[in-house]
Amino acid sequence: MTGMPHKTDAPALVSLTGICKRYGDTSVLDHVDLSVHAGEIVTLVGPNGSGKTTLVRVLLGLSEPSTGAVSRARGIAIGYVPQVVAVDETLPIKVERFLALALRRGQDKSDALTRAVEEAGIGRILDRPLSSLSGGENRRVMLARALLRDPDLLVLDEPAAGVDVSGQSALYNLISDLRARRGCAVLVVSHDLHLVMAQTDRVVCLNHHVCCTGHPETVSRHPEYLALFGADVGRSHAVYTHRHDHHHDLAGEAIHDGHGHDHEQGHHHD
């Protein structure tokens, strides 16, 4: 992760503090803090039903938290790629028209569209009906759509779902390329750790509350994380991880408290 601006120095694009979300007696989110700073890739991991999607909906303003504060940087543009988008065949629409619909009124059509199409690598399928796309193509089109308004923050909910394995790594490479090229921050939601971990700057492990947060390697050794995903995941993850040229001071990096205090402290890499 050399060359990246230090996360805590960059301004927070979005920050959530003390978010609780209850449906009746069920507490889905319990005092969750999450912030995403300019230019960083944050991965939100957690098992199914851990409140990841709810948290993202709160972040996007699609859902009101029961308590807690959501603040977004003034004038921030968020590109959202929701979970698998099922396109109904009753509506005949081609990919290009679908993308054009997402442009702001009066926005110069050709420029933004051409760039997003090129970046997402979907030039060949612009003329195809939207409902005829494969899972991977669908993801790329949704990604291109999210890029149209030149986002400061990309939010991707389970981007690998419905995409085959080779497509998944291509997709993750694409995402990290986009960050490098556009300098946008990325929030990836995933229940699948293996491929995400290598490219991400910070992992937030969620199971209704924030279990632990920090650099991928640190998190993968965290006891709460291992308890949640099992020791097997920790081991298989090691196979996929890049060997970094720097080492981590485990004692200094370990997160002592996984219950929603300020996790931004103490993640200094040397």
Binding site: P82, L91, L101, R149
Partner: peptide, 17 residues
């Protein structure tokens, strides 16, 4: 028309927009 198309395609995306 345009908004209805966007809403039909994906309500949450339309809201975020």
């Amino acid at each position: 028309w345009r908004d209805m198309l966007s809403i039909t395609l994906h309500e949450d995306l339309a809201r975020v927009d």
